[in-house]
Design a protein around this nucleic acid. Structure first.
Lengths: 148, 148
DNA sequence: GCAATTTCGTAGCAGGTGCAATGACCTTGT
DNA sequence: ACAAGGTCATTGCACCTGCTACGAAATTGC
C-alpha cells in the first residue's frame, strides 16, 4: 500500500451545480416521461413546441436565443417534429436564409393537451414546496439574471 | 388559413423544471469545461472521482445510490477512468459480484488539483449571489429532501 | 442441498449529442 | 457591381446515453 497525498475535503452533496442538476432531473422526469410515453416527444422537442405555442411563427435562430438550446439542437428537434407532422416550415421571402416554423393543426391539438399538463405540474410543485418554492425561485431569478 | 383552437397561455421562462435545467447548465458549464480541457474528464466521470475521493473504496452500486447516476453510467464512467489509469478495480472476496473501485496514485494526484478548483468555483458562486444563494439553497434543500 | 429468484455489473443496440465544417444566402466596403 | 466577410440552418462524424438483456454470483424458499 503506497501512501496517499491527502485530498481536500469536498462533499458532492453540497456542491450547488450538482444539486441543481439533480433537482432539474427530478422535477422534469415525471412530466417528461408522461409526454414521452403519450406523444413520443423528447425534451428538446418539447421546448421547441412550447416556444412555438407561445410565440407563434419563429426561426431557428429565434428559438435558439430564447430557449437555451444550441442551434443544431433546435434544427434537429424541428426536423423530427416536421417528420411527425407537428410543425411545418416555410421560407421567409424577405430573407431566404431564415425559415419560419409554426405548429400544424395536429401540433396545436397536441399542445392543447400538453400545456395543461405542464401547468398542472408547475402548480403541484408550487403547492408541494410552499414557502421553499418562493425561496427557490428568488434564488433562481438571481442566478438566471446574471447569466446575461 | 384554417382556424386554430386557442392554446392555454404558458411561458417556458416561468417553468421551474426549465429554469432549474438552465441554471444547472449555467453553473456547471464553466467548471466542466475547465476540467474537460485540462484533464479530459466528463461530468459523469467527475462525479465518480469525487465520490471515490470522498468515500474511499466503493462499489458501482454504492456510487449509483449516492451520486444520482444510473448504474450503467457509473459502470461506463468507471471503465473510461480505468482506461485512463485514474482508478482501479479489485474483486470483493466477500461477495464476488461486487467490485471495489479506488483511485490510483495518478487519480489522487489529479483530484488534489481538481477539488480545489471545485471549491473555488463554489465559493465564487456563493459570493456572487450573496443572499440569493441562501434562498436558492433553502429551496433546493426542500426539493431534494422530498425526493427520497 | 438445490432450483428459483434476486442482485451486481457489463455490453449490444438504436438513437441522441457536441463539435466543426459546409452550403446557401445576405451585407458591407470599396 | 462584386469580392470578402458574416449569418443562418443543416449535416457528417465520433462519441455518449438510455434501455434492455445478459452472465455470474449470491440469497431465498422449499
Amino acid at each position: 500500500m503506497t501512501d496517499t497525498p491527502p485530498l481536500p475535503d469536498f462533499d458532492l452533496y453540497g456542491f450547488t451545480p450538482y444539486r441543481l442538476a439533480v433537482a432539474a432531473k427530478h422535477t422534469s422526469e415525471q412530466l417528461a416521461r408522461q409526454y414521452r410515453d403519450r406523444f413520443g416527444i423528447s425534451i428538446p422537442e418539447w421546448r421547441v413546441l412550447v416556444h412555438l405555442a407561445h410565440s407563434g411563427n419563429t426561426s431557428v435562430r429565434d428559438i435558439e436565443a430564447r430557449v437555451a438550446m444550441e442551434k443544431y439542437e433546435v434544427s434537429r428537434a424541428a426536423k423530427r417534429l416536421r417528420e411527425a407532422g407537428l410543425i411545418e416550415r416555410k421560407e421567409n421571402p424577405e430573407d431566404r436564409r431564415l425559415i419560419i416554423l409554426s405548429l400544424t393543426a395536429d401540433g396545436q391539438k397536441m399542445m392543447a393537451e400538453l400545456l395543461p399538463m405542464a401547468k398542472a405540474h408547475q402548480a403541484e410543485l408550487e403547492k408541494r414546496l410552499g414557502d421553499a418554492f418562493k425561496q427557490l425561485e428568488a434564488g433562481l431569478e438571481a442566478l438566471l439574471n446574471e447569466a446575461k
